[in-house]
Design a protein around this nucleic acid. Structure first.
Length: 223
DNA sequence: TTCATGATAAGG
DNA sequence: CTTATCATGAAC
């Protein structure tokens, strides 16, 4: 895929809460995605290193119009969290059966979210294995956004959780990733070629790229 | 490679 | 009411 670009990050230091929230509040979509990539998601005794994310923008009239975003057509009960303060968890039910997680970014009133697509289970393996009894390979426990939701046990009950508060049921510990790659987003039927998917190339938990069958290719658009 | 699954939201 | 969607696992 010729969309791929790459970069190298600077450190592996875990940032403090206020710095992280401030960075997310001011972030553009691709900045927000790079902040979240490489961080550790903590739910109970389960710790998962996020190795694949996608940036989603917001409203048609906002700073990052994105027809593939749930918030493109305005505020609804489902996407409310995307419009709230940065650093909160937006959980949605995908295709009626899976729970997928996003990290909100941008100032209050401006919608934005980073979809968590895959991760490596660092701790709580027994808990995850119990939730995913038919999956034996650890690399596949949290590969794909629906599987990540399944591995963590997160549901709509955790929607809106403050990811940087110590008493939150879902938390995020931000650290810089060693390196990253970007390419087109998965599964979206519009703006599919926008290179807003980011992943850590050496990770075995990165999900396979699967373009939406409804997404028009660049060639088709040209006629 | 295609299909069933089935909540949420938009459009007729 | 009908159709599309930030997906997955199983069937073909």
């Amino acid at each position: 895929m010729n969309y791929a670009t790459a970069g190298v990050a600077s450190s592996t230091v875990v940032e403090n809460r206020d710095v992280t929230i401030d960075r997310l509040d001011r972030a553009e979509p691709v900045d927000a995605a790079r902040i979240v990539l490489g961080s550790t998601l903590v739910v109970g005794d389960v710790r998962i290193r996020i190795v694949e994310v996608e940036a989603y923008g917001g409203e048609k009239d906002g700073p990052w119009p994105d027809p593939a975003s749930h918030s493109y057509r305005g505020r609804t009960p489902r996407n409310e969290v995307m419009f709230g303060p940065a650093g909160h968890l937006y959980v949605y039910r995908s295709y009626g059966m899976h729970f997928c997680m996003n990290v909100s970014y941008g100032p209050v009133g401006v919608a934005g979210g980073v979809l968590l697509r895959a991760g490596e289970v660092l701790d709580g393996c027994a808990t995850v294995q119990a939730r995913r009894p038919h999956v034996t390979r650890p690399a596949e426990w949290a590969r794909g956004p629906g599987n990540l939701g399944s591995a963590t046990g997160v549901t709509l009950a955790e929607n809106g959780a403050a990811l940087f508060e110590s008493d939150s049921p879902v938390r995020l510990e931000v650290a810089e990733s060693d390196g990253w790659v970007s390419g087109p987003r998965v599964g979206v039927s519009t703006a599919a070629d926008r290179p807003w998917r980011f992943w850590i190339p050496e990770s075995p938990a990165v999900s396979a790229y699967r373009r939406s069958p409804r997404a028009m290719s660049a060639d088709e658009q040209m006629g």
